[in-house]
Design a protein around this nucleic acid. Structure first.
Lengths: 216, 216, 216, 216
DNA sequence: AATGAATGAGTTTTCATTCAT
DNA sequence: AATGAATGAAAACTCATTCAT
């Protein structure tokens, strides 16, 4: 599994105190261990098999300790998914940002490739994220993910406005594109159809570009 | 397919199918009652709330009786989903069949409208089908559905071969199209984005048609 | 233990009651076994020690079976307590009813003796009833008990109206008397002060009678 | 056994009292803070909601620190209750002391009023004291309270010996009176029956006085 | 003295499945 | 065929207490 670990967010070093409290360090580490364990358990046993005791054992903790850091099981799962989602968004954002002048096919394909790689994790984990994410926290996690990607797409489409079908509503187009791309990528990874990766990326790029091309 | 299975294998849950072929009328009727109850319970309470006892009660049976007709709970759910899938496929097939000579935008849009209507059932039911279908019987139900629709699409594409991008692989294109159309339709119904139905159908049609248009 | 509820009389349950009406003898018997077990566990381990698994084991059942008949643990405890309360009220009622013409000291003392005997159960059980009864079902069980006894007392006082202090409010007097008598009896049984039973009954009778005597 | 619930995970309890005499000022202050916090938590959340961590937080301490001053949770609760009981006894004592020559109705009523006011605290706190006090330290706290009040009453009765029923045993009478008065007052405060305060005090006074009046 | 992370046995409850009747 | 009582493993979660720092 290409583990979405190693937390990218480093707390801003505004602290003046040269001394780190070992307490906080330890708590941080424990939270990290729990998230790591949650991710691993999700990847190995899926959402249904991700019991608190399994997570605790994997994290090398007792069941009770989980509840020092998270109010209930789903909060753990949610945190794991959010962490993963944040990473993914960061990756895609990094890919797109500042390359808007590149030729469309280039930037689109590169972005899709980034997404494809980012989603290429343990199938069980991906399935858990896709299937149960929407039910956690009232669907906030997945919605946030799609909204963020949606904003990127919208911003990009806006810069290319004049090349697109004039009749199209940009928000609608973004809505369609984000879900299409997300779902096809996920399905490609989960179902492993007999389509070579390059071909898949090409077709997905084609579909994305053609969708908004002016109708001749 | 939807008929309680011929396959009699027991113990490890490899196959999910009805325990025995009901030969008697009464048995048939009981199976029907169970499926009806299953559908209703799924629609009202979702997959998580679809307990065997709820299904049994709704069917006017005792829990134990369920096991005369189905080897376990998921076999019931699966049968319910298969029944629904069969209906849907039949509807879409009827729509497309014999109208291949109609102008593409017309037939495509009409077909998509049929699908949209067919999927416009109780959200809880749709969600159960989409979310849990793939986990039942190793995803057979959903795969079968998509394969059948895929065959239809493939057949249609074949008749239009010369109008399409020459580089495209038809099976690949069918794979992409089926999943795209299915997912967007489901998401549209479940998430109810602020997109009017007509616009949505138009965009979806556009996306489908444009995807395979020759690259200018 | 002078077990409350060796008696097979079944009071009609309207309140928190078994989850489904036991139609069959076997169900009836099982409910009975659960209540018996609940009573015994309460008597042996008190409310805090009355875990569902202890009750189930004592009843010779598995934990799950409890929930075929009661929606949750406290419903079992409540039923046990109600059964006991019903018995007690019945006993006291039988004692008082139809003997209103007896000399006051006679009937009062006899009634108090009945109550004292009726409350002379396992201390742990009595304590559980007194301490936790008020917290179950919003205190309904204990309130019902006191209200019923209160009605009896009120009825009796009414027949003796002219012998009592004219300034007294009968409902107030009944309220005072019921709680006084109940509490002193319970405390006498739980704390076992060095007061002979006869003396205690005499004093309690005296207190009850004197309370309402006209102030000379 | 003093331990509530015969629960095996607790260490055997013999005596429930502060672990050590706090000699230093700071320790004293900390104990005080803990007791204050305990009282507040009891008043706000009742006995069930009075967790050690809640008490620690309220006291501005860590859970572990509690155990520097008290051997276990119930020792804290017990100390809180004892402190309260001491106050109450002091108040009642002050009220009675030195007024033995006042007319009985006056002093009795005044004393009862003092008691009623003293018990008129947060209902949750009162309930905790009444319900759980008896289970702490084998009921020592409540017993001490009642014994002290009992001594007062006994002393008073002794000074009035010749006005009372000659057959009565003074200790028995004191036992009866103390519990009656205590319980009725508590019930009056907790249940808030529709009886005006003045009437209630009058009736309680009446009951107390009449109880020992010579039988005419 | 103080901290607070960690413990872990124990709680109530659920529900697919079985089997005696 | 049908019943429905019984099962029992598993789940999520709590909290008084301990102990390394």
């Amino acid at each position: 599994m290409s583990s979405p670990g190693s937390d990218a967010r480093r707390a801003p070093r505004t602290r003046v105190s040269p001394r780190r409290t070992p307490r906080q360090e330890r708590s941080r580490a424990t939270v990290e261990r729990i998230l790591e364990a949650g991710e691993q358990v999700l990847a190995e046993h899926g959402y249904e098999g991700a019991s608190t005791s399994r997570i605790a054992t994997t994290a090398g903790l007792s069941p009770g300790s989980l509840y020092q850091y998270f109010p209930h099981k789903d909060a753990i799962v949610l945190s794991v998914l959010e962490r993963y989602s944040d990473q993914l968004v960061a990756g895609v954002t990094a890919q797109m940002t500042g390359q808007f002048e590149q030729p469309a096919p280039v930037i689109v394909r590169a972005t899709l490739a980034t997404l494809l790689d980012g989603l290429d994790v343990e199938p069980q984990f991906l399935r858990a994220a896709i299937v149960h994410g929407p039910q956690l926290d009232d669907g906030r996690a997945l919605r946030v993910f799609e909204d963020r990607i949606g904003e990127l797409v919208l911003a990009y489409l806006t810069t290319r406005r004049e090349e697109l079908r004039p009749d199209v509503s940009l928000p609608t187009a973004a809505w369609m594109l984000v879900r299409t791309v997300e779902h096809l990528t996920v399905r490609y990874l989960l179902d492993r159809p007999p389509i070579p990766r390059d071909l898949f990326l090409g077709e997905l790029t084609q579909m994305s570009l053609n969708y908004l091309r002016g109708t001749t």
